Computed example of a mutant assay.
Amino acid sequence: MTKDAKISINRRIDIISAAIEVFAETGYYRATTAQVAQRAQISQPYVFRFFATKEQLLLSALEVSWLRIIKSFRQVIESATSERLQAEFIETYEKISESHRNEMRLQMQAQTIQEVPIQDAMRYGFREVHRMVLEAFRQAEISNPEESTMLFLARGMLCNIAEAIHLPELKDR
């Protein structure tokens, strides 16, 4: 890979990181690419060099957030014992939520956006996480894996809400 290609990849990552922060703080509709550019310390036209539209930027940000969860859950599946699987999923998601709060907020906001590509991205993420967890629960022979999967996902959403509205007692185990 050339030096210019590495710089380009790094700059793209910087832009996505800035977009995650700006979208999470101000909301997708109120956020501007100028704000994203300012946060990334670049010019606004440079943002459009990588992303033709604000929607494409949001889709890339959502992809990053879902891939982080999916990759982390794959690691849990590869390393956790059957007895620790549920606890490891919970602990992993809590760590992601704490260290990447803006990504969680971004996903929460994206759930309410009606544009089809954004809904598709959210459906993909939820489906993939659901599929992975359900398959892992079945492999671990956890009783009633379907219900356990739904409870796990519901708990994750409740934890996101609790974090967003600063109501920690909703997260207590």
Rank of each mutant, 00 (worst) to 15 (best):
I77V: 09
P145W: 04
A52Q: 07
D14Y: 07
F89Y: 02
F48K: 08
R68V: 09
E163W: 07
I16E: 00
L151V: 04
K54T: 05
I15V: 06
F51Q: 02
T92S: 10
M108V: 06
D14G: 11
G156H: 00
A162N: 03
T26M: 13
E128T: 15
M157E: 01
Y46E: 10
Y124Q: 11
S79E: 14
L85P: 03
D4C: 06
R123F: 01
I13Y: 06
R68Q: 13
Q41E: 11
E146R: 05
A37Q: 02
E83W: 08
H100R: 08
I96M: 11
I113V: 09
H130D: 06
K95Y: 15
S17M: 09
I90F: 10
N10G: 15
T32L: 06
E91S: 12
A136S: 12
A40C: 09
T2W: 07
L170K: 05
E88H: 13
I70M: 03
A37H: 05
Q119W: 04
I15M: 04
T32R: 05
L106T: 10
R68P: 14
F137I: 03
A80W: 14
R30E: 12
P117C: 10
T112P: 12
Q111V: 10
S97N: 10
Y29R: 11
I118R: 05
Q75P: 11
R68M: 13
A18I: 05
T33P: 08
E78R: 15
I118F: 04
T32F: 06
R11W: 02
Y29P: 09
S43T: 13
N160R: 04
I118Y: 09
S72E: 15
I113C: 07
I9A: 11
A40M: 05
S8M: 05
E94L: 07
S97K: 07
R131Y: 01
T149P: 01
E103P: 12
F89C: 09
I9V: 11
I16W: 00
Q56N: 08
E63M: 08
A87N: 14
S17N: 13
L151I: 00
I77F: 15
P45D: 01
I69L: 10
E147C: 08
F23M: 03
V36E: 06
S17E: 09
Y46N: 13
A162E: 01
V116C: 12
R39P: 06
N144P: 07
V64D: 04
G27Y: 04
S72Q: 13
L85Q: 01
S17P: 11
E25S: 11
V116Y: 13
F73W: 10
S143C: 03
E25G: 04
A164G: 03
H166I: 05
R11S: 03
E103G: 13
Q119K: 14
E25R: 00
G125C: 05
G125E: 04
V116M: 15
I96W: 00
L167W: 04
K6G: 11
E91M: 11
Q56W: 00
I7V: 15
Q109W: 08
S72F: 08
H100P: 11
A31W: 06
R138H: 04
